[in-house]
């Protein structure tokens, strides 16, 4: 497993305590999992995603990730309606391991785009990972 300093944590996304990331793209937000999360999970073998049109409140479970011997729930960092899911993950879940920030999971139209400001920035998240 990677040491904290080995992790890839880009500046242009926001993070959550559950190790998801969120990134504004126009008036929608893309959501994925951080390098730390994929490294902890190991080889991801299946991603259970919601349907386009499903709506979630902040903190709701919107899907699950599976490795060979673990299941992790995914919690939505910002409430809203799912406008797209990353269909590539259906056949190639390993994208989340290979390129966690390219491999987004869902795209949502947020109820309130400002909610994203409440998520961690890179440095705060790094602090969380270091146990500060």
């Amino acid at each position: 497993m990677k040491e904290v300093h080995e992790l890839n944590l880009p500046e242009d996304v926001r993070y959550t305590k559950d190790h998801e990331w969120a990134k504004v793209t126009g008036d929608t937000i893309k959501i994925g999992i951080s390098d730390y999360a994929q490294d902890q999970m190991g080889d991801i073998v299946f991603v259970e995603m919601p349907a386009v049109g499903d709506t979630f409140e902040e903190g709701d479970e919107f899907g699950t990730l599976e490795s060979v011997k673990a299941v992790t729930e995914l919690y939505i960092p910002v409430g809203g309606e799912v406008v797209a899911i990353n269909e590539e993950l259906e056949d190639t879940p390993e994208l989340l391991n290979q390129d966690p920030y390219g491999g987004w999971i869902v795209e949502i139209k947020p109820n309130d785009i400002q909610e994203i400001e409440q998520l961690f920035d890179r440095d705060t998240y790094l602090g969380v990972l270091k146990g500060e």
Partner: peptide, 9 residues
């Protein structure tokens, strides 16, 4: 596909 099962989930 053991992630369906009780010892994991």
């Amino acid at each position: 596909l053991a992630t369906r099962e009780q010892h994991i989930r």
